[in-house]
Amino acid sequence: MKSDALKSPEEIYEYLKASFDELLEYVPAELGQSWITVPPFSMKAVAKFLRDDPALRFNTLMCQSGVHYPDEDELGVTYHLHSTSHKHTLVLKVRVPIADPRVQSVEAIWKTADWHEREAWDLLGIVFDGHPNLKRILCPEGWEGHPLRKDYRQQETYLGVTTGA
């Protein structure tokens, strides 16, 4: 392990601030891991920096989850990153308004985001700009709505067959 590896999210935040200035926001959490909030339009740049910077080297995107926050009328994406060389982890969050849910795709940075982003689009309707193949993945083509939204109502028929809704 390298000695200059950054450990806690706070340290990483301080380190990132040098490059990204006011864009990022550090949110300490009482329960679980604290996270850094990233604006949706600079997600890709931040991701690239996190992956390539020698002190960070977040070479793996463990998990990418879409979340619907009905109270704020917002959608969110949570990124769980981790580095096999420095053995540290980081949580990033992006929040977008539900009316215009656009987030930059990180598919080009971490290939694994391909299917995760398609899933988030399918189930929550988050649009990932720059994704090469943003299609439904779990629900069939032509399904209406995004099932994981809190206000989702299942369509009554699909291709003429009742869905049991």
Partner: peptide, 24 residues
């Protein structure tokens, strides 16, 4: 009745890393 918060817990299943991201 957990407190407000979120966890991401990963475990090693036979097929690999199983992560549960739970928000309370």
């Amino acid at each position: 009745r957990p407190a407000e918060g979120e966890v991401y817990v990963r475990t090693e299943t036979p097929r690999g890393e199983l992560g549960y991201y739970i928000i309370s």
